[in-house]
């Protein structure tokens, strides 16, 4: 297991703000579409299949 579950995001509040701010004026559908694209962009950054599968498992359970 190589997934980092300790704090790793620099400036957590700023990240969270950016995420919610991006969707402030979106409909539910638009926000869900954006989330799907965001997952794919972040998944590509991670790349390693074992890490991605572990992340999917953590998110699902």
């Amino acid at each position: 297991m190589t997934l980092n579950l300790l704090p790793n995001i620099e400036a957590p509040d700023a990240f969270y703000e950016a995420l919610t701010e991006a969707q402030r004026d979106m409909s539910e559908d638009e926000a869900n579409d954006m989330n799907a694209r965001l997952v794919l962009i972040l998944a590509n950054q991670i790349g390693r299949l074992a890490d991605l599968k572990e992340a999917i498992r953590l998110a699902r359970d």
């Binding site: 869900n32 579409d33 799907a36 694209r37 997952v39 794919l40 962009i41 590509n44």
Partner: peptide, 20 residues
């Protein structure tokens, strides 16, 4: 379907999505 459409939308702009 939402993920599929997201892959297709991104693939037009970014190479990373094309193998998906």
């Amino acid at each position: 379907r939402r993920y599929r459409d997201a892959v297709l939308a991104l693939s037009g702009k970014y190479p990373f999505a094309r193998p998906l």
